[in-house]
Design a protein around this nucleic acid. Sequence first.
DNA 1: TATCATTTGTTCGTATGTATC
DNA 2: CGATACATACGAACAAATGAT
Lengths: 256, 256
Amino acid sequence: MPGEITRPDPMYVQLAGRLADAIASGEYAPGAQLPSETQLMERYGVSRPTVRQAVAELRNMRLVESHHGKGSFVTQRSTPGLTLPRTVRRTGKRYTPDSDLTEIEAPAIIRTHLTAEDAATLEREEEAAAFAVDRLLTDPATGTRAAHRTVIPFDVADENTLLALNPDTDPADIYALLTEAGHALTWSETVSAHIALPDERSSLQAEAGAPVLVTRRVTSTAESRPLILEETRTSAAHVQFRFRVIPEKAPAKGRN
Amino acid sequence: MPGEITRPDPMYVQLAGRLADAIASGEYAPGAQLPSETQLMERYGVSRPTVRQAVAELRNMRLVESHHGKGSFVTQRSTPGLTLPRTVRRTGKRYTPDSDLTEIEAPAIIRTHLTAEDAATLEREEEAAAFAVDRLLTDPATGTRAAHRTVIPFDVADENTLLALNPDTDPADIYALLTEAGHALTWSETVSAHIALPDERSSLQAEAGAPVLVTRRVTSTAESRPLILEETRTSAAHVQFRFRVIPEKAPAKGRN
DNA sequence: TATCATTTGTTCGTATGTATC
DNA sequence: CGATACATACGAACAAATGAT
């Protein structure tokens, strides 16, 4: 089969590709300065806007950083500085998350209605009433920020007077409350990522176009009834999540 | 304290912010068409390049999609269509991953040396020799792609003749080999995200500027000796990962 | 200290190509 | 075919940060 006929990439994409290759091959080592825009114009015979668009692509891929008045420099990609454990420890009847973040400001309690997505994961009616508790967290050592939201459907709060009175209870204490109420708890978590929105840029101190990592942890009863949802979002440039993978016995049918 | 003096945002950032707010507030509903570039020029009294730069910001945040000859439309954000379980099931002495992806092409076996990052997670010498096995996977139902790499240090392969002869053994079968060799296996996994690089754009069919999700699973012995590393990367636009969180007894000292 | 050359950032104008309807 | 819309590319000017003179 002859190769399909396709439109050639625009010049700024071609230039970005060449420079990306040069960076990947080590021709421009991490920390090295890229040729100036003027030099790139002359070397490749294109205009300044074209060069700038190409370099903008590299910036977006986080391959280079540009500094006003100085130049563009190859970034040294490294493992995220902070690893947030998503594991849970049991001591007696108490379950405590392993992550160790401190609150930056007092938790904000909001009475809301479930979004379509939250309703689906909590297996509730869409628009069902719920508490949402927002926390802004930080890692003292690195200054990294994380936004945490706890979603508590009203029907769950109704079953726990203490929870209804203090929805801003610490998650570890909520686990304790639910356990004391006779629930055997299980946890499931999904991880997704997206580009930072304007509000996340400010709260998470993320740069434009930077990826944001999101985990959604559902606490359920042993009978698979979802109770509460916790959502943690943080800048993927600085943080990664860690899980333990523990094999479960296979009924070979389960589709949880 | 009087407000700090800061430089005003450039016009294209201001315009992007206004449009983002309008989208967030529902003024432009999902699926709705944005005013054309000409209309935005007139309405806000800026030039075409400025309008284009603002809309490019919105595109980068995945708030709008632009279609040649038609216009720019507000995207309807939705949950990733595919949830990849990262859980493992045990049947007898056999451990099988729950994810169900099919190979697109034959696995590629490469003899390489560990990168700094891989060496750190595998607790080996940097540049230590290893097999790397690359697979291109797909979900038949959705056509979503994923790239999988298995990294097997030579010292591990040396202890398992079958593994040395067939590094491209399926991960589930590698687990079986290692178990038969007397190892009690444990798994740990980290999740990170970054913007798609040019090569990922093509292999994962990701768009420019789109986030890529990466999980790195380390299989270790019960004595915490890392044996192999599996890395799975996929476009975060289409996929999320799922884990079970299973509490472990707390020696209150562990720092694994 | 002040000035200047270099470099990136912002904004405009303009022309042409091409997909859609 | 023409009108509209976005995509690509060029040129030009000025602003602002930086570092050296």
